[in-house]
Amino acid sequence: MKILQIVPSISLIYGGPSQMVLGLAPALVKEGVEVTILTTDSNGDNGQTPLDVPLNRPIKQDGYEIIYFRCAPFRRYKFSLDLLKWLKRHAHEFDIAHIHA
């Protein structure tokens, strides 16, 4: 099974779903699930410097993949046109999409 996890940001500055997904992904991998997390490089709502991460390509971590996309500068609202384009091309490759907010 392939699960796509979509979350606005996984920066440590955020709590809740942003951090929960980092615990859920390795637990799913232990059960034999392929996991990909889509997120943005957002690192706060008050103009903080974006996360220093590679963009638009998979990064392997603890048995799953994370793909970061540039976050548009809308402050509270995390939006990425590149993430949307990636979804249009690849969403059909997954059995489940789990959207966190």
Rank of each mutant, 00 (worst) to 15 (best):
C71M: 08
Q19C: 01
D62Q: 13
A91H: 11
V7Q: 02
F94C: 02
D45S: 09
W86F: 14
L22Y: 11
K2C: 04
T49Y: 07
L81R: 10
Q5C: 09
V7T: 05
L22K: 13
H100Q: 06
S18R: 02
Q48A: 12
H98F: 11
H90D: 11
T40G: 02
I67L: 04
S9G: 05
V35C: 04
Y68L: 03
Q19P: 03
D52F: 09
K2V: 07
L51S: 04
L38Y: 00
E93T: 14
N46L: 12
Q5W: 00
W86P: 05
L87E: 07
A25C: 02
F69S: 01
I6W: 02
R89W: 12
L55C: 07
N43L: 08
N46V: 14
L81A: 06
F94W: 05
V35T: 02
K60I: 04
S80H: 01
P26D: 03
F94T: 01
A101L: 15
V35L: 05
K2L: 12
H92A: 15
K78N: 06
G47V: 12
A72S: 11
S9V: 08
I3G: 04
G23H: 13
N56C: 12
I13E: 06
E65F: 08
C71W: 01
G15V: 03
Y77F: 12
D45E: 09
G23Y: 15
E65L: 07
R75F: 13
I66Q: 00
V33I: 15
Q48G: 10
Y68C: 06
P73I: 06
A91S: 15
I96S: 04
Q61H: 11
D95H: 15
D45R: 15
